[in-house]
């Protein structure tokens, strides 16, 4: 574009600078949850699996702040221990899918041609299998638990990362700055790995942060369905599953507590992911 309307354009799209309160609050929530997960045995007031028939469906009391479930187990303690599987699963999925996705996306976007076409076709097929469906299939094949679903979901999410990376890399590749590097005599590999990759990674990373929330919800759903983490292990999804029976009797707390834990963590992760996308997206000329 040439001369005129820079000022007009900037004005036409007024940007609200979001207050960072929600962002910082979300970081705090995530930090607390992570610490709780890591130091669960030190923090939790009770053994999460300790059955106490004297205190079945206890409401909130000084002894049990968030009450107990049908077996008298302390809901707070179970929630704290549940944070372990809740956070670890998504972390593994996000990290592995991001690494694999970025590498494949870089390959497809940078090399183009038949590699791009073949990878694109493979991604299209995997896209047709939603992550939760792949996870359910993995359970059907390899049995219940979290190992198979985590691997399956890493495979399911990698194409999302790869496609985003591919699009970004392909658009970077056509930018004059890449041509400029070539004219200066830099090799294609150097440009791709040392210059283009670092330019696209922050955007992809921010997007992967958003995936964390989805994965967390989906793995919890799997446990809720009785296909993931198995009772009596403390896990948010499994806790809700077990607490379902009590709902009809009006005992909401054992179900609502882990449910709120899921919601709060997902909100926090999404707020962080969106804020990161906004900040990073704003810095790179589109």
């Amino acid at each position: 574009m040439t001369t005129p309307t820079m000022a007009v354009k900037v004005l036409r799209a007024p940007r609200v600078r979001r207050g960072n309160i929600s962002f910082n609050l979300s970081l705090a929530v995530l930090a607390v949850m992570t610490l709780a997960a890591v130091f669960a045995p030190l923090i939790a007031p009770y053994d999460p699996d300790a059955v106490d028939f004297a205190a079945i469906y206890s409401g909130p009391t000084p002894a049990h702040w968030l009450g107990t479930d049908a077996l008298g187990r302390d809901t707070l303690s179970r929630m704290i221990f549940g944070a372990r599987t809740a956070l670890l699963g998504p972390l593994l999925v996000v990290v592995s899918s991001t690494i694999v996705g970025i590498l494949l996306g870089l390959l497809a976007g940078w090399r183009g041609g038949w590699i791009d076409s073949v990878l694109g076709r493979i991604f299209d097929v995997i896209f047709a299998f939603p992550a939760l469906l792949i996870a359910i299939m993995a359970v059907a094949l390899f049995g219940k638990g979290l190992v198979a679903p985590v691997i399956a979901m890493s495979i399911a999410y990698a194409p999302f990362v790869a496609r985003l990376t591919r699009t970004l890399v392909a658009s970077e590749r056509s930018r004059p700055y890449v041509a400029a590097y070539r004219v200066q005599g830099f090799s294609g590999g150097w440009i791709a790995l040392r210059r283009v990759l670092p330019n696209v990674t922050p955007i992809v990373g921010a997007q992967s942060t958003l995936n964390f929330g989805y994965v967390l919800a989906e793995l919890a759903a799997l446990s809720f369905l009785g296909l993931g983490v198995q009772a009596p292990t403390a896990d948010w999804g499994a806790m809700i599953n077990e607490a379902q029976a009590g709902l009809m009797g009006g005992y909401f707390l054992p179900a609502i507590v882990p449910a709120m834990a899921v919601v709060i963590v997902v909100v926090a992760v999404n707020v962080i992911g969106e804020e990161l996308s906004d900040r990073i997206g704003g810095g790179i000329p589109a």
Binding site: G213, E218, A220, I240, G250, I256, V271
Partner: peptide, 23 residues
């Protein structure tokens, strides 16, 4: 929207059951 987007189906289900079916 962000809050709604963080309510997975199973959470939505139990909350709706608790409030609109049971209560």
């Amino acid at each position: 929207l962000t809050v709604l987007g963080a309510i997975p189906s199973f959470v939505g289900s139990i909350v709706l059951i608790a409030v609109f079916a049971v209560q």
